[in-house]
Computed example of a mutant assay.
Amino acid sequence: MSDRADAEAPGSARTNARRDIDEVHLRGASPATVRGALADGDPLPGTAGFAGAVDGRLVRDALGRQPVFTEADDHDTWSFDPAALSDPDPVPAGHARDSEGDERVWRLPDPDPATDERAAVRAVREAVRGAIDEVPTEGLAVAFSGGVDSAALAARLDAPLYVAGFPDSHDVDAARTAAAKLDRELRVVELTHGDIERAVPEVAAATGRTDAMAVSIALPLYLVAKRAAADGFDRLAVGQGADELFGGYAKVARAPEDERVAADTVRGARREVVGTLPDQLERDVLALRAAGVEPVAPLLSDRVVAAALDLPGELLVTARGERKWALRLAVREWVPDPVAFREKKAVQYGSLVSRELDRLARQAGFKRRMDDHVERYVDSLR
């Protein structure tokens, strides 16, 4: 089985093509840890996600935090980078793949909700704090939008903060306000239409996505990462996973009335959106790597995932509709309340990238009356 994972540089996967899978090539965990997790079926063995080759099989962790791919018709040829393959097929999260096909080897636990709310919040606090404090800061920057997720990282990591958005965007304003409350310097990446036009084909090529939602989410991440990489940083701390794990979506808060979820409880709806993480993380990881940085996601570490899955529904969304309640209570120990309890827009809207991408598409002749007009515009730039 070959590994065509990296660029054509000395020691890269292309240079070392046709490497046998039994010569372990693994990201995010040691072979011993993965072998132990396979042996006992533990989906959360104390990592922040992993993928790669172990003992004749490709594996990808239960949340899909590290993507890995094979050729669709040749499972013996694989890569961490889909661009290195002619027809890449992702290994599903929680699976092992060999030449015979895929096998489900891990499933996320589905514990009964904790009954002691104070203890549950304390467990979240200890997990989040521990995961963040273990992050080395050499070569690290922080993607910072001013919300509770990125503020939890920024307040504990001695690393520069970056935000991307159009000059009048909510994210830039929120990040400036929050950075001031944290007494931290903020580096603002003010976006222009030219930035978007140049980045769109790069993001589409890196992620393999052209739909409007995927591209508009990936663009601000990519452009923040590009600036951080240009400034000499090779790792970017991100708050990915908090909305899914801690009940940050409106459709979760409105369950079961919201038709976008099938579940009839907040906890059930939360589990549904956690199930979307592998696909989302694949997009984000590939975009960030294409920009020249390696993502670091402390809020997706196994210890945080385990603490979040234990939460009762009322600590995800309160009776008053306040979302991510346990996370907000947990991090107020080191994040000022005006930041910890601030509601924030999704990145594609808070940065105004979604609005301006739509505007560029219409200016290029792709009108809203056309089906998938933004996607057609993205394809035209490729």
Score class of each variant (00 low, 15 high):
residue 204 A to G: 09
residue 71 E to T: 13
residue 117 E to D: 15
residue 13 A to Y: 03
residue 275 G to T: 11
residue 327 L to C: 09
residue 320 R to H: 08
residue 297 A to E: 14
residue 358 D to A: 15
residue 145 S to K: 12
residue 172 V to M: 02
residue 184 R to P: 01
residue 96 A to I: 03
residue 51 A to W: 05
residue 4 R to E: 11
residue 7 A to P: 02
residue 203 V to K: 02
residue 104 R to Y: 00
residue 353 V to L: 07
residue 130 G to E: 10
residue 194 G to C: 05
residue 39 A to V: 06
residue 236 L to Y: 01
residue 167 P to D: 12
residue 48 A to Y: 11
residue 116 D to W: 02
residue 317 V to T: 12
residue 342 R to Y: 01
residue 257 E to K: 08
residue 204 A to R: 09
residue 166 F to K: 11
residue 277 L to V: 14
residue 235 R to E: 08
residue 138 E to T: 15
residue 363 Q to G: 14
residue 230 A to E: 12
residue 42 D to E: 14
residue 378 V to S: 10
residue 55 D to I: 04
residue 145 S to Y: 03
residue 144 F to Q: 09
residue 58 L to R: 12
residue 302 D to W: 00
residue 240 Q to N: 13
residue 108 L to C: 10
residue 375 E to F: 01
residue 227 R to A: 15
residue 367 K to W: 10
residue 205 A to T: 12
residue 357 L to E: 09
residue 281 L to S: 10
residue 86 S to F: 10
residue 24 V to W: 13
residue 125 R to D: 11
residue 131 A to Q: 07
residue 110 D to T: 14
residue 33 T to Q: 12
residue 194 G to Y: 00
residue 1 M to H: 13
residue 55 D to P: 01
residue 82 P to V: 03
residue 15 T to D: 13
residue 69 F to K: 09
residue 209 R to Y: 12
residue 361 A to T: 10
residue 208 G to W: 00
residue 370 M to P: 00
residue 293 V to A: 08
residue 214 A to W: 07
residue 280 Q to R: 14
residue 63 L to W: 01
residue 267 R to M: 03
residue 369 R to P: 00
residue 75 H to C: 03
residue 16 N to K: 05
residue 173 D to C: 05
residue 223 L to W: 03
residue 173 D to Q: 14
residue 61 D to C: 04
residue 28 G to I: 00
residue 74 D to L: 02
residue 29 A to Y: 08
residue 248 G to L: 00
residue 343 E to L: 06
residue 190 E to V: 12
residue 331 V to A: 08
residue 206 A to Q: 02
residue 181 K to E: 15
residue 318 T to Y: 01
residue 11 G to K: 03
residue 40 D to C: 13
residue 106 W to Q: 09
residue 158 D to I: 04
residue 353 V to A: 04
residue 317 V to C: 06
residue 180 A to R: 13
